[in-house]
Design a protein around this nucleic acid. Structure first.
Lengths: 106, 106
DNA sequence: AGTTTGCGAAACCGATTAGTTGCACTTATA
DNA sequence: TATAAGTGCAACTAATCGGTTTCGCAAACT
């Protein structure tokens, strides 16, 4: 199935997993220790995160270490950019207004 | 139901609605004209967006105009901030590396 | 060689999602 | 006042989601 990064971060557990492995590479078991779910449930989340390239895996013996692909997070940032422009322009409009009021007081 | 902004933007149709009303306030009918869904389907999306304060409505006669609450989008930006710090620090590490190489060449 | 450990995949299940149709209500128009 | 237009809500439905249990397989340990 084609995965969407926005759908991937929609689930709070997946966001928590992202936060965990952002700090250091972790195995599924180590990740699952932080939750009340089974390792298999975590494994399913990892699969979804992997399907949209948010994480990558590195096998080491029988263990698999998952790491965050921080580059992928930029996609959200890029989507947000168009709206950031809007709120920043509104903020500068407010600045202009305050400046006008200030000048009138003189 | 308590709504989550991340869940709200997970749906591509809702992201399209957000993009539409970011430009100008629109009525449900006007929004629905842009999709192949029924007006009622759009109405349900609007309800979800409203439940997490991403949009607000303004009644004008029998019409209801929906506008984007751009401030709410900042919540995503704040969540993203922790990861932005990471990719920016990695970028500066790359800068350091390039600088080191450059100095060696001298 | 036999057992334990770490993992993913499959089958299953209840809850949720995203759409539909049908309806009721309010406002504008003839 | 009757009718049309704009809207939200409720009931229904197929598909998806997020969890579980069970299983099979490969690597590591005894």
């Amino acid at each position: 199935m084609r995965r969407d990064i926005f759908q991937a971060i929609a689930d709070p557990t997946r966001r928590a997993i992202i936060a965990l492995i952002a700090l250091q590479a972790m195995t599924p078991n180590a990740i699952a220790d932080n939750f009340n779910f089974t390792r298999q449930a975590v494994s399913k989340h990892l699969r979804i995160l992997k399907e949209c390239d948010l994480i990558k895996q590195q096998t080491k013996g029988r263990e698999i270490y998952y790491t965050l692909q921080i580059e992928k997070m930029k996609e959200i940032d890029e989507w947000l950019h168009q709206y950031r422009k809007i709120w920043e322009s509104r903020f500068s409009q407010l600045d202009d207004l305050l400046l006008t009021i200030k000048n009138k007081e003189k």
